[in-house]
Write a protein that binds this DNA or RNA. Structure first.
Lengths: 206, 206, 206, 206
DNA sequence: TATGAATGAGATTTCATTCAT
DNA sequence: CATGAATGAAATCTCATTCAT
């Protein structure tokens, strides 16, 4: 009598275990056996559900990206008709929430960043995500300023967000979320200086 | 009398070969054999000169950090008595020069960033470097503004530099150095707005 | 449900294979691959079950020592209340039985003797075994003679046993067990001369 | 201007260095580089003078055996016309002198014993030596007792000598030469009991 | 004569994957 | 569905030997 419907449970278990293992010893030493041990299952099952280690890693990266997307989307859903500043603020906050990124996902995220340079599949995922952050920002900035200015503002803020997150994650003390948000918002204030004249009127698009 | 004095030559060759290999296939697949092949020598010699692969990786990271340090220091040496803005500008430019970082060193650098989270020795090196960037910036900002403001400015600019560099390196098109410098300098301008009152005084280039 | 319970079987197989390999080519050339081939398994499994080659060698030495201990103990179990001469005789005979020591274990035993000088773990095992032989003999001799005499008798007989075994094993013709036993017993007779006065009392075999 | 006549000096240096290295880390870890370092020369020279590592090891064993032979012969040279007891005593003492065997040679000796089982060349040397000890003893015992008794006496005493030496070398405290000699001489006394009637008369053959 | 440099074979170990149960 | 068993490829490191100088 085989248990049915285990698939989603196992997949989720194993993805969490992957993050835990990478958090613990790094991507290079996250062997399938260690991951399996974290999940409390045997190593062979990974090939069963994910076709192999690469499949599991890709699924894990997808999960992280989707968590991040959701963290941002959730905040923005409450802002229908919000101002650009509000939307951009939500994007900032969502990025520094990053679901569980204050936790096992943080190191996993950085590990994938580095790894994505040489694995086509991961690179694709990572690029989509980068573009999403940039586009979202760009889209909002363009409601307030001309094309070129908006692009540079988006590039600058995207860089600021990633840079704060990167330096925070790498620092021995870990990321100080509050400070990071404060610095990012301060930068946003500067970017918007002189552009937010008569905004309350503008129509929004979710 | 045998051929002598090969050690420094080989060490340098092997460090370059390490960067080339990481650039080509990533840290995970940069085996000693591949590195040796890049250098045109046999694999065993790596253990001979560096004690092992770890020794070579550490030496490579040191090289990159020292190149970066030198790129910045060189620019600042020409600025004795320069204004804070000039010094900070030199730091920015030095960071986007990063010697050969437009080249094999870029991916190596990012690979080490990720790897440093789980290797004590690399972590130490990386942390020293992060602190150096932050301290240098902080030191200059404090010539113009109070403690707290200077700290936040340094944190923000350090994040901006690393973020621009990270996103540029990861993007399929590679880092657009000119744009990165322009954005960083623009951010610097904003940070200094209102602080550069009595600066006209000192303006020399050694 | 997978095939289970192979561990003890494999461990035993591999220990036997280790003795066979050492017997065949010596400790220095007993590579894990050769040992694995003797056992009809792959080399990797040695690390799986013993943690590495050292673990296997240690386990093999333990096995030999325990076989020897058992060969002696078995003979003595039939001698509850036996005379010292009987017990010592059993010790001699047990040492020249050495289970399968007329076979692959002989050279293994000698190889470990030499190796034990520089490997702490083996040294410990070897020392415990040496002490056991000496103590057992000493204990019996003391039932018949004063402290000092008993000690020297034990030292002499222990040396005689090891010496006969060593020279026999190294000689091209191999150990002549019968002759070795005869010489050892003759020496024992000399050692006991004049001490066995009131022995007729206890003479039972369980 | 090449130095001439270095050969005997180098050979001797390297043989001593070999013993020192084996004494220090054991035969298995006595690499040519370590041996060369002990001798204060470069590794390549070993192949030059001995044709390779095996040649050096064989030369070292020869040296040890010849030292031992000399230690015995020297004592016996002073005994022309000595009694069998005196000659045998000299053999015992010579064996427990073993030149420098209380020193680096001891472990080397044991290492070769084990190694000789699988290296034809060493085996030959070791066998010649074993036979020499046995023959010398046998020859003397036969001056006092019948064939068969003499053989067994020689076998017993040879075993006693090797056994005492072996157990002494392996014991953590090292070989107690005095005690070993005392035990061996005591055994000799027993072996000769009843045979030494009118010996002073007998003619000796050196 | 002797060295530093370099090689390449070989040994151990790790690990993702497959498979029968 | 899941496991323990097992494999074999690959990676690192060691080391005896060779060689030009």
């Amino acid at each position: 009598m085989p248990k049915t419907g285990m698939e989603p449970i196992r997949r989720s278990q194993l993805i969490q275990a992957t993050m835990a293992a990478i958090d613990e010893v790094g991507l290079a030493d996250a062997t399938v056996m260690r991951i399996a041990r974290h999940a409390g299952v045997s190593a062979g099952i990974i090939s069963h559900y994910f076709g192999g280690k690469d499949g599991l890693l890709e699924a894990t990266m997808r999960q992280i990206l989707s968590d991040l997307g959701e963290a941002v989307a959730q905040r923005r859903r409450q802002l229908v008709n919000g101002s650009p500043r509000e939307h951009i603020g939500a994007i900032i906050d969502g990025n520094f929430d990053r679901s569980q990124i204050i936790g096992p996902a943080a190191k996993t995220w950085l590990a994938f960043w580095a790894s994505s340079m040489h694995k086509a599949q991961l690179q694709r995922l990572q690029h989509v995500n980068d573009q999403r952050l940039y586009s979202n920002l760009c889209c909002q900035f363009r409601r307030l300023m001309p094309h070129e200015e908006a692009r540079d503002a988006a590039r600058g803020l995207a860089a600021m967000i990633d840079g704060l997150w990167l330096r925070g994650t790498l620092s021995p003390e870990g990321l100080d979320t509050e400070r990071a948000r404060r610095l990012a918002h301060a930068y946003l204030d500067q970017l918007l200086t002189g552009y937010e004249t008569s905004l309350a009127s503008t129509k929004e698009t979710a």
